[in-house]
Simulated scan of single mutants.
Amino acid sequence: MSDDEKLVGEFPFLPKQERAQAKRNALIESGYTLFQAKGYENTTAKDIAAHAGVATGTFYRYFSDKRQLLMSLLKNQIETYLPPDINWISNDPVSTLASSLENHYNRIHEFGLRHVLPELLSKDLELADVLENARGRIHARILSGLKQAREKGLIWNDLDLDTVSWAIMVIVENGLDRLAEKKCTYQDLAKLICRMVFPPSVLNQLCGSDAETSE
């Protein structure tokens, strides 16, 4: 059983008829809307049912509780919220990374529910465990990419790549708030990360004269 399947659990009933499927889908859409607007704690199963135009009993016909509905929304989406793969071996790593970050943050905006996760993590140990496993997979991919770049002689020789990989994850995970506050740009984040990884001479060579490495 996958992490996603463990999170969601077994549904009370999975409809096959079109009319019943429409009711279930309406509940999912209603839950998504209310979780976004009110947060997880302030949304009840009764609220979701009323917003969908069905009885509360209908909600429990399809979902065990509001958590199961939320987990069904998050299914296969956990890694959407985590740092993307990074191509360190690029002719212009700063621009490549900036573009990757922009696409990553746009996906988060499109899916939504980002601010619901912190509400749950301190209380839902199962979700926290799944998220930590996902972070571990992302960390491993970043670390692997850095090792490849080191083999090509592109990055600092004395970097502890494991630590740097975690530092990059923290920067990317918190970057969305900085961008929302207009305190930085995608290019700013990409430059910060690349300056951690590449010696100035290599970064200037790869990025050209626009890659200034001194303030």
Rank of each mutant, 00 (worst) to 15 (best):
M1K: 13
E5W: 10
K6M: 15
V8D: 06
G9Y: 14
F13M: 10
Q17V: 15
E18C: 02
A20E: 08
A22Q: 12
K23R: 12
N25M: 11
N25H: 09
S30P: 08
S30Y: 04
Y32A: 09
T33V: 10
L34F: 02
L34T: 00
F35H: 02
F35D: 00
Q36K: 11
Q36F: 05
A37H: 05
G39V: 10
Y40C: 02
E41G: 13
A45L: 07
K46G: 10
A49C: 04
H51R: 06
V54K: 05
G57W: 05
T58M: 07
F59E: 00
S72N: 11
K75L: 07
E79I: 09
T80C: 10
P83S: 01
P84W: 02
I86S: 07
I89E: 08
I89G: 04
N91F: 12
D92M: 10
P93D: 04
P93M: 08
T96R: 13
S100I: 12
S100A: 15
E102C: 12
H115F: 12
L121S: 02
S122H: 08
L125M: 14
L125A: 14
E126G: 10
L127N: 02
A128M: 11
L131H: 03
N133R: 11
R135F: 05
R135A: 07
I138A: 01
H139Y: 13
L143V: 05
K147L: 02
A149M: 07
E151A: 09
K152R: 07
G153W: 00
G153L: 02
G153H: 02
G153R: 01
G153Q: 00
L154I: 05
L154F: 03
D162S: 06
T163W: 05
V164M: 08
V164K: 03
W166N: 10
A167N: 14
I168C: 06
M169W: 11
V172G: 04
G175T: 07
L176Q: 12
D177A: 14
R178N: 12
A180K: 13
A180H: 10
T185F: 04
Q187C: 03
Q187Y: 14
A190P: 04
K191L: 14
I193H: 01
I193V: 08
V197F: 03
V197R: 01
P199K: 00
L203P: 00
Q205I: 09
G208Y: 09
S209G: 03
S209N: 09
